[in-house]
Amino acid sequence: MNADHNITFETIVGHVTGELPADQSATLAQQAEANASLARMIAAIRSVITALREPQDNPTEAALARARQLIDLQVGVLPFGFEPAGLVIAELVEDTRDPSSMYGLRGEATAYQLSFEADYAEVHLHVTSEAGGNCRVRGQVDVFEPSNDDIRVALRRSGREALIETEADDTGQFKLEVEPATYDVIVSVGLRTLLVPSVEIG
């Protein structure tokens, strides 16, 4: 979300990547014509996705500048060790909060699960509510190609700088306990950084 409009980051990414239904995409484009802030954000995301989602040995200075523009815009200053140059936005591929995900099960879901994929990794989150009101996040980062890179995972609550951070084990699994809120999930795999923006937890 942004102070000048109430469109989520995911929706904008969906619009840019063509995954948003056509009617919603058209509405968004109309809104962007009347809202300079929204238009700037769409342009920034489009340029970064175009520039950085294609494999490039040497990203141009301009692409890096645009990446930083996006980071400033959406992510803020990345924590130390998270490399902005390799930033990739992951896409949502599974969401058990979708009512249709209950289909085929003989019971009630007490936890929910989200999976996000980028071209080189998948991030899976399993969220349960604790008795005290906090949320327990157990997750796993699957790197598609064999890799010995360390995997670090950080959750940043929207609008705050403080991070809740941990390292994944050698199977890519990690666990965190957080207050219910909206978080950016930032995952570093070696020099690459994968961003899952605006994930509602709890």
Binding site: T96, S101, G104, A111, Q113, S115, H126, Q140
Partner: peptide, 24 residues
Amino acid sequence: AFQVDRGLAGASRSGVRAQRLVHH
């Protein structure tokens, strides 16, 4: 329990994506 839940959430997967969950 986590891997069981992952398996159920990924019930519609096939191919490499499904094998990955079996492996885990």
